[in-house]
Design a protein around this nucleic acid. Structure first.
Length: 787
RNA sequence: UGGGGGAUCGUCUAAGGGUAGGACGACGGGCUCUGGACCCGUUAGUGGGGGUUCGAAUCCUCCUCCCCCAGCCA
């Protein structure tokens, strides 16, 4: 596919991201024998383009790291799941080009999961609650108020065991009891307020039949399924961040029990689901689209389901490329549809042979072409820039169809197509001139009478090349075909944003069906050939509806079209303020350049005013020690930091020590006793004040001391980290770097002065931070200036 | 109001104290028997204030805005 296959070997499937960083580190530490991921769909709907990101991530990671990825159906809710979904999900994953190591079902673990639940009960960490669902909800409290324990929370282990057994035996109706984890009803994380682990559901399950009438919930089944499978990295979406606490609680309480290995255990990582402009990803709403008849099924080519994209003609390669381009991250996002389209076009450009087809025909009669004559013109299937071989012949005759849009009686400026009296090149054929426009009684154009220039096949006419080239088909030879022109299903970028009423923003033009005419060569090609209809877009035969005697084409994606875009521009009203520019009528009330009122620092909102009386006193005292306002503020508010500071500052240097305590040691002190004692920090700061070391050395040393607990001054001694301020020692390094980077020097001299920082950084690196940065700075600036 | 996350060109995403880079888009040009492709160029960004540092997207601090959590769904 690629024209540079040599460079694509060993290319990563997943671009580096925060998860690959975790994996790299885990591999360095040898925490797992191998990387094992899983793609865990619930079989209650079809996969969509959003799932494709997750699939490419999980399977791609396994491929990149030589690990494995399982396909696991998260089928713990018998009421919404079905085998139809299972089969389609499998088909979609395989079609995308991935093969799972193992095909698994959470429901296959039901017996094991039950055993875990019993273990939790025996350990006093789970109990049967007999409150109704409304009561449980009420007892759980709210985000601002703690919950209260259920009156059943302290049942004995025996009673819990008995009740749980009877739940399993089907002695109770739905909702009579649930099994809950005994965690903490006052926890600030709502998810930890005794989450429900099992509920009674008298329903048969597509996979386990009627074997069970109690079913585990996601929060219980998921982490344990991961652990059972030996998953190393359990990747899910952002909305499960709070659930991670349950994940960890369960694994910490059950690891090493019931045959579960103590270690390694899986950990959960969350990434942001990708949102695509003009599409919906919510399964619930997708179902409404299908069941409400707004589309013609899950594989309607307007749907961004995997099956819809497949039927539309998009290739798995294009989808994978798209997933790779948009990447993986944790920020909320809304991906431009143009990104998907670009990935599709890039793929199809090298895959789709070119043919000629006319979608909205306008008859052209060549008055000087012999009646009954037919020529078979040789036409390459690929443009010169696509390195592929192949051609076909296209019949040419007296009567043709051209695209209606390619003729305008009164053309706008810049129109390069056919006009009255104008000339145009017929793609792979002759140059023609329009002599006459034939209209019907209603004034509509029904035919063009043209003459062709017989001496223009493969060469330009004597009077110069025509402005444009248009596509055409020979009328008597054309193959009629239904052509389905698909456009975005919704007319707004975020159809899910509105309060439920996505039906208001359906695009009425999302499907336009036209009767088109295709050159006859398509009859010779395999049915699943994807074509470029030149100047129109990429098309292929609808895999479900097209028949040899009745061709039906789907438009996969249009070609980029800078002409239409340019002509439509005036209608686009949106004009950014930046474009308004100075030429806009200058209003007398021009806003002055934003005046930034510089408030006294202490008057920042939320600053001194919020201090308690005691903190005020501390603040004042610290300020008297000539400690900066910001530092004094932090110390006044945080007793732990303040205590540390007091001890460290006994020998003086209060202001400098305050800076170090606040800016460098804050996190370490807050989370416990820092590994660097106050007196040791003071000693380090002393070296810095004496100029023996610079702040770069001090920071590096402090970082190391914080990790190892070593004495910072001893680190300085051991490594011989003395600051080098002698310009004579530094100069050769600067000169060498300048000699080695002529391009950077040039950039600097042409105005890009920021490059100086590059040289400073290099010198600092070369000297392991020992050079005096000010000296370096001066040297670099002087040398770069060209002295 | 509690807790958990997040914020970098229009969009998506890199840079983890040392030149803010790439992709998509937009704009301009070249080339062209596709107003496609390709090539070249331009545009444009660190949410805000303060601090630390020779140097801050990155470290500290205060603030703002956005998302998620009160299913016996996943």
């Amino acid at each position: 596919m690629s024209d540079r296959p040599s460079s694509t070997t060993r290319e990563r499937r997943v671009s580096p991201n925060f998860i690959t960083e975790v994996i790299d580190e885990d591999l360095r530490q040898r925490r797992y024998p191998k990387i094992v991921t899983r793609f865990p769909p619930e079989p209650n709907g079809y996969l969509h383009i959003g799932h494709a990101s997750s699939i490419c991530l999980n399977f791609g990671l396994a491929l990149d790291y030589g690990g494995e990825c399982n396909l696991r159906f998260d089928d713990t809710n018998p009421e919404t799941e079905s085998i139809e979904y299972v089969e389609n999900i499998k088909r979609d994953v395989q079609w995308l080009g991935f093969q799972w190591a193992r095909e698994l079902y959470a429901s296959d673990y039901f017996e094991k999961l039950h055993e875990f639940a019993v273990q939790l009960i025996k350990d006093g960490k789970a109990y049967v609650d007999s409150l109704s669902d409304e009561e449980i909800s009420a007892y759980r409290g709210t985000v601002t108020e703690p919950g209260r324990p259920s009156p059943y929370r302290d049942r004995s282990v025996e009673e819990n065991l008995d009740l749980f057994t009877r739940m399993r035996n089907g002695e109770f109706p739905n909702g009579a009891h649930v099994l809950r984890a005994k965690i903490d009803l006052a926890n600030r994380n709502m998810k930890l307020r005794d989450p429900v682990l099992y509920r009674i559901v008298h329903a048969s399950h597509y996979h386990t039949g009627d074997a069970w009438c109690i079913y585990p919930l996601y929060d219980f089944a998921h982490p344990l399924s991961d652990a059972l499978e030996g998953i190393s990295h359990s990747i899910c979406t952002l909305e499960f961040e709070n659930n991670r606490a349950i994940y960890d609680w369960l694994l910490e309480n059950l690891r090493g029990k019931c045959g579960l290995p103590h270690s390694p255990r899986p950990y959960q990582y969350e990434f942001a689901r990708r949102n695509l402009d003009y599409t919906m990803m919510s399964k619930r709403k997708l179902i409404r689209l299908v069941e409400g008849g707004f589309v013609k099924g899950w594989d309607d080519p307007r749907m961004h389901t995997i099956s819809g994209l497949r039927r539309r003609g998009v290739t798995p390669e294009a989808i994978r490329e798209f997933a790779k381009r948009i990447g993986v991250a944790k920020a909320e996002n809304r991906v431009d549809l143009a990104t998907l389209e670009a990935a599709i076009r890039d793929d199809l450009n090298y895959r789709a042979p070119r043919v000629l087809a006319v979608l909205k025909p306008l008859k052209v009669g060549l008055t000087n072409y012999p009646e009954g004559k037919v020529e078979h013109l040789e036409a390459p299937s690929w443009p010169y820039d696509v390195p592929r071989q192949g051609s076909r012949t296209v019949p040419f005759s007296r009567d043709l169809y051209i695209e209606r849009d390619d003729f305008i009686e009164q053309p706008p400026k810049g129109f390069h197509r056919l006009t009255p009296g104008g000339r145009v090149r017929l793609r792979h054929g002759y140059v023609i001139r329009c002599d006459e426009v034939v209209k019907n009684s209603a004034g509509e154009i029904v035919e063009l009478r043209c003459t062709y220039d017989a001496d223009t096949l493969g060469k330009n006419p004597a009077d110069g090349p025509p402005k444009g080239t248009i596509h055409w088909v020979s009328l008597p030879h054309a193959v009629p075909a239904e052509v389905r022109l698909y456009d975005r299903l919704f007319s707004v970028p975020d159809p899910e944003a509105g309060a439920g009423g996505f039906t208001d923003c359906l695009n009425p033009k999302s499907l336009i069906i036209v009767e088109g005419h295709v050159e006859p060569s398509v009859l010779q090609n395999p049915r699943d050939t994807r074509y470029q209809f030149e100047r129109l877009g990429y098309f292929w035969q609808d895999p479900a509806d097209s028949r040899p005697d009745r061709l039906i084409f789907n438009r996969i994606v249009t070609l980029r079209d800078s002409w239409t875009k340019a002509t439509e521009k005036p209608t686009a009203v949106a004009r950014t303020p930046a474009q308004a520019g100075p030429s806009a009528e200058s209003t007398p009330t021009v806003a002055p350049p934003r005046t930034v009122e510089t408030k006294p620092v202490g008057a920042q909102p939320g600053a001194q005013a919020d201090l308690t009386l005691k903190q005020q006193a501390t603040y004042t005292r610290l300020r008297a020690l000539s400690i900066g306002e910001a530092d004094a503020m932090v110390l006044a508010r945080e007793p732990r930091l303040e205590a540390y500071f007091e001890e460290a500052a006994r020998g003086g240097n209060a202001a400098a020590i305050a800076r170090w305590v606040v800016n460098e040691l804050g996190p370490a002190i807050r989370t416990g006793p820092a590994k660097v004692a106050p007196a040791r920090l003071a000693a380090l700061v002393g070296l810095l004040q004496d100029g023996a070391i610079n702040s770069r050395i001090a920071k590096d040393v402090l970082t190391e001391a914080l990790e190892t607990g070593a004495h910072p001054v001893e680190i300085v001694e051991r490594k011989g980290l003395r600051q080098v301020s002698d310009a004579g020692a530094i100069e050769p390094i600067v000169e060498r770097l300048i000699a080695e980077n002529p391009d950077k020097v040039r950039a600097y001299r042409s105005g890009k002065t920021a490059v100086a920082a590059f040289f400073v950084g290099q010198v600092m690196r070369d000297t392991q931070g020992r050079a005096n940065p000010q000296v370096v700075q001066n040297l670099v600036t002087r040398k770069l200036a060209g002295s």
